[in-house]
Design a protein around this nucleic acid. Structure first.
Lengths: 222, 222
DNA sequence: GTAAGAAGTTATCGAATGATTACAAGTGCA
DNA sequence: TGCACTTGTAATCATTCGATAACTTCTTAC
């Protein structure tokens, strides 16, 4: 069954008639768009911009390849939209962590920097999100993606400086640890952790304190 | 003139007869190999594994595309050799910095960690070297490149722990700042620095203290 | 109910790219 | 000098991939 549409014949296979037809219904293009963007985030994060194919995105999203291209125009436009969405999510997560009035996890300090740091680590649950951004950071030489990637990084830095109130050095240290986390995820270092590699264990436990469970969980389904 | 060999006709165009024929001579394959590996390091660093083409490598090296492929077998084998070479250079640079008995630059402290840190920053002069490694770190999901990339990272970590004597936390901080530097280079953040962007200036001056001149120089010819 | 539009697909094209083959030209040694 | 070996290229092939076109099917407003 290559089609996303459940035909009448399929319906009889699935269930008795007159049963939850919403799976047989077409999606609104807006919903399908979100679905494809999610799939694209995962694929771009895993293989990078050039390594990702529109066909792989389509397969993950469960649609045909031409549909992906037609909806976004070009692969490049799709990637740019993925980046924009990822950055928006990142910034929203940071902003929420700053203004969140709930108490910090038991026994942990509660400074703005620490709240933001925990928020960043929370984004690891969506593996593709941070990795897609990181992949764009490696394409600074690209005439189209490069400027967007730089602007995105600057946007995060500016937030840390002006909204969180970090000094340049504090922001540098924060971002450096973020890049380190991204690298650990990009390397699939959790694979070696699962194998019991002592170096990998040291690395991950130091680089991702308290967030290892999240990373290990998200590495399983891959 | 697409050929690397200066033909008789070219020679007459270039110079009077009987003039420095060594530019017209063939290279030993070993030398040509080094030339291609250098070109490949630059191209892979700039575009990543999938974005790089054997043809681009060939053009930079000044040879034909089939020659590149035949000499290394496959693009993948070429990339793996680039990674191995880059890591060897990295480790050799670290080892030399550790055992080097020359005094540190005027007014700077001289601890093993600081020496290694300066050595890492020195590697920025070859922009492709660190970027090729970084590109591999983003391909941890690749069945062939992934394990090699993880092993390479572990090798650096082990060196820091066992040879330099760093604690896990010290190694983590060191590597985090290394990833930050790599990111700044990958983003071509120096372009914004040259434009006078105040954020870029802050970022680079904090992330690459004292090494900005190197980065700005190496960004010009690109 | 039916016509218009939205949602999606199949088929296919052209360009790019890694790889292969066959061939040409320089180099060195007897 | 000539002959084997090395160094290198031009031509070309098979795939892959992004993109386009044309068509089908569902939905919905009247």
């Amino acid at each position: 069954m290559s089609s996303v549409i459940i035909t009448a014949a399929d319906k009889t296979l699935e269930k008795a008639p007159d049963k939850v037809p919403e799976i047989a219904t077409r999606m609104r293009s807006q919903d399908r768009r979100e679905l494809i963007l999610g799939a694209a985030t995962a694929v771009f994060g895993e293989r990078g911009y050039f390594g990702a194919t529109t066909d792989a995105v389509a397969k993950v999203a469960g649609v045909s390849q031409p549909y992906v291209v037609r909806m976004f125009g070009t692969k490049e436009a799709l990637f740019l939209e993925v980046l924009e969405r990822a950055l928006d999510t990142l910034m929203k997560t940071f902003a929420r962590a700053l203004t969140d009035t709930s108490p910090p996890p038991a026994g942990l300090e509660d400074t703005p920097s620490l709240r933001i740091g925990r928020a960043y680590a929370d984004l690891l649950v969506d593996r593709g999100l941070l990795l897609s951004l990181m992949q764009s950071f490696m394409l600074g030489a690209d005439p189209v993606i490069g400027p967007v990637a730089r602007a995105g990084f600057i946007r995060v830095y500016t937030f840390l400086r002006e909204e969180v109130g970090m000094t340049p050095l504090e922001a540098d240290v924060f971002l450096a640890h973020g890049m380190m986390m991204n690298t650990m995820v990009g390397l699939r270092m959790a694979d070696l952790y699962a194998d019991g590699d002592p170096c990998a264990i040291d690395l991950l436990e130091t680089a991702l304190p308290g967030k290892l469970d999240v990373l290990l969980d998200s590495s399983k389904p891959a």
